[in-house]
Amino acid sequence: MRIVIAEDLLLLRDGMVRLLTDTGHTVVAAVGDAAGLITAVGEHQPDLSIVDVRLPPGFRDEGLRAALKLRAADPDTRVLIVSQYVERAYAAELLADGRGGVGYLLKDRVTDLDEFLDAVERVAAGGTAMDPEVVRQLFTRSTRNHGVDGLTPRERQVLDLMAQGLSNSAICAALVLAPVSVEKHISSIFGKLDLPPADDAHRRVRAVLAYLNS
């Protein structure tokens, strides 16, 4: 996989380069600011960009804004955002177009090799990867959503794992449920969140978005 990294902290940037290179990926560019990210993606057309939310010069949301600009120009652009803190509005904005190929991880998660690489693979493949702590805080702040508050405890567990980006089979393993049970729970979630059947491969993303925007 060909990857661009945009991270201003040199040690973290170099650490990600070594980690990804050692696991068989190719880091085509590693930059320290948003302008460098835009240039690198335009030049290399990577399979995935790993981007810090806060980049020079303002260290506010330059990385996120650059990522959104890239996705606006090409909706198939895959972006994995990393952040020091849970920033709910940023997670919602990433998912606002209802497409996959996005992720949001806390930087602490980068040190968990298996979890980080799993997120990299999922986002590059067009899925989603949300940090469990991000999901936990989003659920805590979403109890007033008219659709979400109608979910059963088990449906909330399933939606929690969907938000993290897990597949049906992975949800089955995590909750020790049969595939047919997981499928029924997901169907019920879609119904309660008013997401009727359609030729739309991103209903899972829109189900997550229903509580991100609550």
Rank of each mutant, 00 (worst) to 15 (best):
D74M: 07
R71S: 10
L166W: 01
E43Q: 08
K184Q: 01
V135H: 04
L10A: 08
G103C: 08
L161G: 01
G165Y: 01
A124L: 08
P153L: 03
V208A: 14
E183S: 01
D118H: 02
A173F: 01
A35P: 02
L117V: 00
V176E: 03
V79L: 06
G101V: 10
E115Q: 06
P56T: 02
G24E: 11
L159N: 09
A198W: 10
L95Y: 07
A66R: 03
V4M: 02
L19F: 04
L195C: 14
L113W: 04
E121S: 02
L175I: 13
A34P: 05
H202V: 14
A29E: 11
H185F: 07
L105F: 14
V28Y: 11
P46M: 00
K107L: 06
Y90L: 09
A210S: 09
G150C: 04
D131H: 01
L117W: 13
A29T: 07
A129I: 13
A67Y: 14
D118C: 06
Y211H: 05
V110I: 07
L19I: 01
L177E: 14
L9Q: 06
V31H: 06
R2P: 05
P132R: 11
D131A: 01
F116T: 00
I5K: 13
V205D: 15
R99H: 11
D160R: 08
R88F: 02
R54F: 12
T23F: 10
D14Q: 14
D47I: 01
G36T: 02
E87H: 05
A170D: 04
I81F: 15
A125M: 09
F139A: 14
Q45N: 15
P75R: 05
D131K: 03
A29G: 13
R144Y: 13
V82G: 04
G127R: 02
S142I: 05
V28S: 11
E155N: 00
F139Y: 13
D8C: 05
A198R: 15
L80F: 09
F190Q: 09
A89S: 03
A91S: 08
L193N: 14
M1S: 12
G165C: 07
A129Y: 08
D76N: 13
Q84D: 07
R122I: 08
P197H: 00
I81T: 09
S142V: 02
T128S: 12
F190K: 12
V158I: 00
L20Y: 08
R18M: 04
T140F: 13
A173L: 10
